[in-house]
Computed example of a mutant assay.
Amino acid sequence: MVRGVRGAITVEVNEADHIIVETEHLLSEMIEKNNIIPENVASILISVTDDINDVFPAKAVRKFEGWEYVPIMCMQEIPVVNGLKNCVRVLMTVNTDIEQKQIQHIYLKDAVQLRPDLSSSIDK
């Protein structure tokens, strides 16, 4: 079955190294909590708010061994008035036997407010 795994994290500063480290942290949690292996990933979409522009957060995926063939695309979120700032959002499309309600979506730091009903207890 094809499922979407969502995640989001906020970053403190618009600096390449910081953005990559935080995105890597988010991806690690998403991968670990949902037992995702790269061969089962169809694609990854990563969006950022308009205040993040120092680096493509997709570079974080390339730090994971075996993930070099996973298609990734970065894009900018629509600039919603009063929307959450400094946010990286991820949508992984994966093949899995996990039921929809068992998918663990990961929301870290200030991104918890995006989906408090689904947010992980990690790093709140």
Rank of each mutant, 00 (worst) to 15 (best):
M1R: 06
R3Q: 09
G4I: 06
G7M: 05
G7D: 13
G7H: 03
T10C: 10
T10Q: 05
E12I: 07
E12L: 11
V13P: 00
V13Y: 11
N14R: 00
E15F: 01
A16W: 02
D17F: 00
H18A: 14
H18V: 09
H18E: 09
I19Q: 01
I20K: 01
E22W: 00
E22P: 00
E24I: 09
H25E: 14
L26E: 12
L26F: 09
L27D: 07
S28M: 06
S28N: 10
S28Y: 15
E29S: 06
E32K: 10
K33A: 13
N35A: 08
N35E: 12
N40K: 13
N40G: 15
A42N: 05
S43A: 04
I44T: 06
L45E: 10
L45K: 07
S47H: 12
V48F: 00
T49N: 07
T49H: 05
D51M: 05
D51N: 11
I52S: 03
N53A: 06
D54R: 00
D54Y: 02
V55R: 00
V55M: 00
F56N: 03
A58R: 01
K59D: 01
K59S: 01
A60G: 07
V61K: 01
K63C: 03
K63I: 03
F64E: 01
G66D: 08
W67C: 02
E68T: 01
V70S: 03
V70D: 09
V70P: 06
P71I: 12
I72L: 03
I72S: 02
I72K: 01
M73Y: 10
C74Q: 11
M75C: 07
Q76C: 04
Q76I: 04
E77H: 12
E77P: 00
E77C: 07
I78T: 11
V80W: 14
N82I: 11
L84Y: 09
L84F: 06
K85H: 15
V88R: 05
V88P: 05
V88I: 15
V90F: 03
L91I: 14
T93K: 14
V94I: 15
N95A: 07
N95W: 09
T96C: 07
T96V: 12
D97E: 10
Q100L: 13
Q100C: 08
K101C: 13
Q102N: 13
Q102C: 08
I103C: 11
I103Q: 06
I103L: 09
I103H: 10
Q104T: 09
H105A: 14
L108W: 11
L108P: 02
V112M: 04
V112A: 08
V112H: 11
Q113R: 15
R115I: 08
P116C: 00
P116M: 04
P116D: 04
L118F: 12
S119G: 14
S119K: 12
S119C: 13
S119D: 10
S120T: 11
I122V: 15
I122P: 03
D123C: 13
K124Y: 13
